[in-house]
Amino acid sequence: MSEIKILTIEHADIYRSLRLKALKNNPEAFSSSYEEEVVLPLSVFEKRLQSTETFIFGAFSDNRLVGTVTLVKESKRKLQHRATIYAMYVSEESRQKGIGKALMVNALEKARNLKTIEQIYLTVVTENNTAKSLYKLLGFQVYALERKALKIDDNYYDEEHMVCFIT
């Protein structure tokens, strides 16, 4: 079983490593690219982990970081009832073990505990049926389809926009 916790600045190096692995192995799942982030200094990742509006959850198995998900609160006054899930990733060797679900459950629980969050958004590539099934199981529903949302080389990927109302 894995342990889920919010990552801190002390996790910056292992977080950076897993993030780069995710971008390299599953480029279609992220709007950022490996090429853009591999050149970023560690301080950029440290800053992400120190934000008061961002919560990056890590899944640890055998003391190794094997998965992450990021919950970002909206800061603008009119949007403070919203948050967005970004950068969901579980390493290939750790999939199909409930780690992704555990990460998402922790992120949703954190959003509920913040009291101001009423709805959570995310996007998912239409071909990622495993992720879509998980999100639907957790109460997310599709509200829009964005055609050709991502372009990697000469390949386009559509994304579904999903929302979960938690109040």
Rank of each mutant, 00 (worst) to 15 (best):
I56D: 00
A144L: 08
K136P: 07
E159S: 10
L49W: 04
K78C: 09
I166Y: 08
L145G: 05
L103N: 06
A107C: 09
K5N: 13
A111C: 12
A144Q: 09
K76W: 13
L134G: 06
E109N: 15
A59L: 12
Q50R: 11
L108M: 09
T52F: 12
E118F: 10
Y156L: 11
E118Q: 12
T84L: 06
I117E: 05
L20R: 00
K47I: 02
V163K: 10
H81P: 05
G58W: 05
V69D: 06
N128Y: 05
L71T: 04
V66L: 03
M162P: 00
S31Y: 09
L42P: 05
R19D: 00
D154W: 00
I117N: 02
S75C: 08
T54K: 07
S91K: 07
D154P: 01
P41G: 08
S17L: 07
R16Y: 09
C164D: 09
R48K: 12
Q119N: 13
L114P: 04
N128R: 08
E28S: 12
A22S: 15
Y143R: 11
L7Y: 00
S61K: 14
E36S: 08
L65C: 06
E92H: 01
L49C: 09
T68D: 01
F60Q: 07
E146P: 01
Q50T: 11
K97C: 06
L150I: 01
G58I: 12
I85W: 01
I56T: 06
R77N: 10
N25Y: 04
A59Q: 10
V125H: 03
G139K: 04
L103Q: 04
L138R: 02
M88A: 09
E35T: 12
A29S: 12
I117K: 04
T54A: 06
N128F: 09
A107D: 03
Q119D: 14
N113A: 11
T130Q: 15
L137N: 14
I56M: 03
N106R: 15
N26T: 08
K110D: 10
D62E: 13
F55P: 08
E36V: 03
L42M: 15
A107Q: 02
T84H: 07
